[in-house]
Design a protein around this nucleic acid. Structure first.
Lengths: 104, 104
DNA sequence: GCCATTGTTGCAATAATATGCAACATTTCA
DNA sequence: TGAAATGTTGCATATTATTGCAACAATGGC
């Protein structure tokens, strides 16, 4: 049971990493190409410390990985399927909501 | 841009609902069959108020729906694909982590 | 070595979540 | 109507997340 619990905690960690609008935007940016902290911070108009922390959170969850290149650190998406998964889930739910509304 | 923001917020809401180990267990229980609050609370060994609140959160996210049947309220999973999505994401990440370890 | 660029971490203030108990609401049935 | 069973909501407390700034760390070029 303890092992099962850990399994669900790991899984919840992945969803926690995805449970923030800005982090989702960051992941979509990373789906196009690798980005360094600085450029991504400029692109999104937020402080680099926030971008750095969020990237580190996404990395802990296993969603992205990084490579240092000189003074900058390049981050890239590990599993692009994650985002397809996100939009698929969203579409299913949207359809369901429409269905419920039309039934009322 | 405002509309795009709302889109990401909606998506983040779905992931927020999934970002808790107990709620993930609840969803898996619901994948088998519909459950009422009371039975699910017994099964999981937590207070019914927590189960009720979590179910309501999952419902707001569009993941489940409910029907009152006498004194009890039956909840059921709307999109079982959501859970497949979870295990798919997890597997991809696990594979990636193994790959990284073997490279070191 | 020194400086510029880039990235990370620590801290503090604020906001959001989790948790459990108790009160209240809804439905059924006698 | 009143009691029993089931669900929901309000409140209080503890934990966690968000955010921005400033300090610190790492790398490369002069």
């Amino acid at each position: 049971m303890k092992q099962l619990e850990r399994r669900y905690e790991r899984r919840a960690e992945i969803f926690k990493a995805l449970a923030n609008p800005l982090r989702l935007v960051m992941l979509e940016k990373l789906a196009d190409k690798p980005w360094c902290v600085c450029a991504l911070a400029d692109e999104l108009g937020v402080d680099k410390s926030i971008v750095s922390k969020y990237l580190s959170q996404l990395k802990s969850a296993g969603l992205i990985e990084d490579t240092r290149k000189g003074t900058l650190v390049e981050y890239r998406l590990v599993a692009p399927c994650i985002l397809q998964v996100a939009s698929c889930a969203e579409e299913t739910i949207q359809e369901q909501k429409k269905k419920l509304l039309s039934e009322e």
